[in-house]
Design a binder for these strands. Structure first.
Lengths: 196, 196
DNA sequence: ACCTGAACACCGTTCAAGT
DNA sequence: ACCTGAACACCGTTCAAGT
């Protein structure tokens, strides 16, 4: 509130004349962000449509990671962005899930998305990618942990030392999303309806 | 720091004699929580073992949701809890994944876990389950959004109105985790090694 | 070695008052 | 209707000083 006020070259209290409290302000900004979400043509095929809608959601949250905790709180909704949820639900139903399973899968996708955005936001070069050089690249948590542990006691972690950081950077949202969908969607075996 | 100091019936500055700054303190508390993690017997079967290890991790974070943002930051590690990661990696490898895919799947699981804990922590009756009665049960975000929208425009969301809250409460960590594993692990078809 | 008080630069918010 | 200043109850942290 105080920072906003000084950015507006005003006093903190002036803000309170337009807004009840910080939560109301956050709700308004959330709605503003939701309205700014681009709505491109989505693929016709349900699975590609689903991937596109989820990736759009992911990108939007990556661009505005501060909204994640607000949305996670659950009481504030970016009403202008519910079309994304509608698209995801529609695609999940088109792919063979009933309402409840579709909703459940949507929740899994949301938790995964929220978690990844939260992790990605707190990483070097998140927003300030301009600087480029960061000296030596800060050890990964696996390397930190293994530095003071017996490799023989943690053989699988030991095998990650020096490689985990690179692999984590290489991780793509579509990787995890693909796994979730592969696990949640009904399998279409070689022949459609071969097994009733 | 100030709250800690007053809880200790001391001054904020006394704390700074034992600890460099708040981050060092958080690291120490994180390590303390990690050391308090129970280490029960885990099932022998890799998949059950994996589910048990992940659920243990989930429960630990649910009990201490404030550590999630700290762990997500990535620079602080609860070294005494890395055995959970070792167990997860070991089970994933035992289930047929190579190092890189196992690590990738571990990341997916972590993102999902972090996201769900973050969502669950900010829900009514999270820690104060003792109170029990909460009057009328606060509308779900689906209901909030749909209250001001045309049901015809969002048919799939409209079908969730009044049911989504219940379904969200019914959601179990094992649901999403099961989907992730089903999608990430190699399929063992009816006959082992039938298709090379 | 261990602690203190005053101070600085921050928060969100209330209250009484000004135009 | 719109804004202000002073104040309250908070933060993390520095600095000089006390035992």
């Amino acid at each position: 509130m105080r920072r906003l006020a000084s950015a507006l070259r005003s006093t903190p209290m002036a803000v309170y004349h337009h807004v009840r409290d910080k939560d109301e302000l956050l709700g308004l900004v959330l709605e503003h962000v939701a309205r700014g979400l681009p709505r491109p043509e989505l693929p016709e095929q349900p699975r590609e449509r689903l991937l596109a809608a989820c990736t759009l959601m992911y990108r939007a949250f990556l661009d505005n990671p501060w909204v994640v905790p607000i949305v996670a709180r659950g009481d504030l909704v970016g009403v202008s962005a519910v079309w994304v949820t509608e698209e995801i639900m529609a695609a999940l139903v088109a792919l063979g899930l009933d309402d409840q399973h579709a909703f459940r899968t949507h929740q899994t996708i949301w938790y995964f998305t929220a978690g990844q955005v939260m992790s990605a936001a707190h990483r070097p070069g998140a927003t300030d990618g301009a600087t480029g050089q960061t000296g030596e690249p800060a050890p990964h948590y696996v390397d930190v942990a293994m530095a003071s542990r017996d490799p023989a006691e943690f053989p699988h972690l030991a095998r990650l030392v020096g490689r985990s950081r690179h692999w984590e950077a290489e991780y793509r949202y579509a990787d995890g999303l693909g796994h979730i969908l592969d696990g949640a969607l009904p399998r279409h075996d070689a022949a459609d309806g071969a097994t009733p």
